[in-house]
């Protein structure tokens, strides 16, 4: 890893100011950024740690909306969201392994938008709102492509607001070495409709499967999805799975998620 200057501000204002400097990048839990820096895929001149900012941490319920601070580690979400939004808590508790979950954060995962990460599926599948230091962004507008988001240079995610659904489930076909989703489906049923978000499949990153949503709006059963499929075109392909295999998994994991949601 190339060397860099390290800064750990105590407040959001200080962090925003520091990020205005040349070649500065924010650091949250570091479970993706640090490995990529070791591989010299990334070499910022200054790292601004966000983990010392108390205002960015914590899980709280406001009405029927669960608000999670951006620097909250996965392990904390897995515990504190369990009673209010069990599907989200289970997703958080299935990321990486226990030691990774003690460091990795929701804000870091969403800002990175890895095409196989779990949290983007939860945010898009829940119709969450991503709150930054300057604005609020609907999940539908936030994820703009593989490793790409609507975040501007120097903009920091401060919290994520999840409307709590009537029922939901996330099922991932786990890549056994990395525990990323080879393909995963997040299904959430709200009073005004069902949302289905797929991760680990498309070359464009996480996406909504609208045909499945329409079918599930008519009948929230696994059978309602019979005959529905996604084309292999545009799906990721690697040594773990071909595009056709991933397209097939989308339907399988969505059916399983509907069954699990009950």
């Amino acid at each position: 890893m190339y060397n860099f200057d390290f800064v750990k501000p105590a407040t959001l204002d200080e962090a925003v100011a520091a990020l205005g400097g040349e070649d500065a990048q924010p650091l949250s839990g570091g479970q993706t950024l640090l490995p990529s820096m070791k591989q010299r895929l990334n070499a910022p001149g200054v790292l601004i740690s966000l983990t010392g900012i108390a205002a960015l941490k914590g899980v709280k319920l406001e009405g029927r909306t669960l608000v999670i601070g951006a620097a909250t580690p996965h392990a904390v979400v897995a515990t504190e969201a369990a009673s209010v939004y069990p599907a989200l808590a289970a997703l958080a508790g299935g990321i990486g392994d226990p030691a990774v979950r003690n460091r990795g954060t929701i804000g870091g995962s969403l800002a990175n938008n890895d095409p196989s990460a779990c949290y983007p599926a939860a945010a898009l599948g829940s119709g969450a709102t991503i709150v930054t230091n300057t604005r609020e962004i609907a999940a539908d507008d936030f994820f703009t492509g593989m490793f790409e988001t609507a975040l501007e240079q120097g903009e920091i995610i401060t919290a994520v607001k999840f409307p709590v659904p009537e029922k939901a489930a996330y099922l991932k076909f786990q890549q056994p070495a990395s525990r990323f989703a080879l393909t995963g489906a997040y299904v959430a049923k709200y009073q005004d409709g069902v949302r289905v978000a797929i991760t680990g499949a498309s070359e464009g990153g996480v996406f909504r499967w609208t045909e499945a949503e329409e079918a599930l709006n008519r009948s929230f059963t696994a059978e309602a999805l019979n005959g529905l499929s996604l084309p292999a075109e545009g799906m990721m392909g690697d040594l773990h799975g071909t595009p056709a295999y991933r397209a097939h998994l989308c339907a399988v994991m969505t059916r399983r998620a509907v069954t699990a949601a009950g």
């Binding site: 390290f6 750990k8 570091g30 790292l47 460091r103």
Partner: peptide, 19 residues
């Protein structure tokens, strides 16, 4: 490389000393 930081298990190869 697992150690405990403030009581929580972490992978110390993926944590910065200054952090």
């Amino acid at each position: 490389c697992v150690v405990h930081v403030d009581g929580k298990a972490v992978k110390s190869c993926t944590v910065l000393a200054q952090d």
